[in-house]
Simulated scan of single mutants.
Amino acid sequence: MRKKLIISIISSFVLIVLGINVYLSKGSASNKEIDVNVTQLKERTLKRTVMIPGTLSLANEQYIYYNAEKGDLDKIHVTEGSIVQVGTPIVTYENDEIELEKEQHELGGKSSQLQINSLNKQIANLNLKQKNLETELGKEEAKNQIDIERTQLKLDLETAKLDLEKNNLESKSTLKREQDLEVKSDIKGTVLEVNKEAINNTSEVQNPVIHIGSTDEYIARGVLSEYDALNIQPGQSVVITSDVLPNKKWEGSVKQIDYLPQKQTASDSTSDTANQYPVEIKVDDEDISSIKPGFKLLLEIETTSKKARSLPIKSIVNEGKHKYVYVVENGLVSRKKVKVGETTSKFIEITSGVSEKEKVVSNPSAKLSDGLEVSIK
Rank of each mutant, 00 (worst) to 15 (best):
K4V: 07
L5E: 04
I6A: 15
S8T: 11
S8G: 13
S11N: 02
L15F: 14
I16V: 15
G19P: 01
I20K: 04
Y23D: 02
S25R: 12
V38D: 09
T45G: 02
R48Y: 01
V50C: 09
L58E: 01
E61M: 12
E61N: 12
N67F: 04
N67V: 08
D74G: 08
D74Q: 14
D74I: 00
H77I: 06
V78L: 06
T79H: 11
S82W: 08
I83W: 00
L100P: 00
Q104G: 02
Q104A: 15
K110D: 03
L114S: 08
L114F: 09
I116D: 05
I116N: 06
K121M: 09
I123P: 07
A124W: 03
Q130P: 00
E136C: 01
K139V: 02
A142V: 07
N144Y: 10
E149W: 01
E149R: 13
Q152Y: 05
L155I: 06
E158T: 14
K161P: 03
D163M: 13
N168E: 13
S171N: 09
S173Y: 10
T174P: 04
K176V: 11
E178W: 08
Q179E: 15
L181E: 09
E182V: 14
T190Q: 11
L192Y: 06
V194Q: 02
N195F: 01
N195P: 05
I199C: 07
N201G: 10
N201D: 12
N201F: 03
T202V: 12
P208K: 05
I212G: 09
S214T: 02
D216V: 02
E217N: 13
L230T: 15
N231M: 09
Q233H: 11
G235R: 07
Q236T: 02
S237V: 06
V239L: 13
V244G: 10
V244C: 05
K248I: 11
E251D: 14
G252I: 02
S253Y: 01
K255Q: 04
Y259L: 11
T265D: 11
T265S: 15
A266H: 06
D268H: 11
T270Y: 10
D272W: 02
N275L: 12
P278V: 04
E280A: 04
V283I: 14
D287A: 10
K292M: 05
K292Y: 10
K296E: 08
L299N: 06
T304E: 15
S305F: 04
S305R: 13
S310K: 06
K314A: 13
K314H: 02
S315T: 03
I316C: 11
E319K: 14
K323E: 13
Y324V: 07
E329Q: 15
V333S: 04
R335W: 01
V340F: 09
V340D: 07
V340K: 10
G341L: 09
G341H: 05
G341Y: 06
T343W: 08
K346D: 12
F347P: 00
F347I: 00
I348M: 11
S355I: 03
E356M: 08
K357W: 02
E358P: 04
V360L: 05
P364V: 06
L368R: 12
S369R: 14
S369M: 14
G371T: 04
E373M: 10
V374Q: 12
K377C: 01
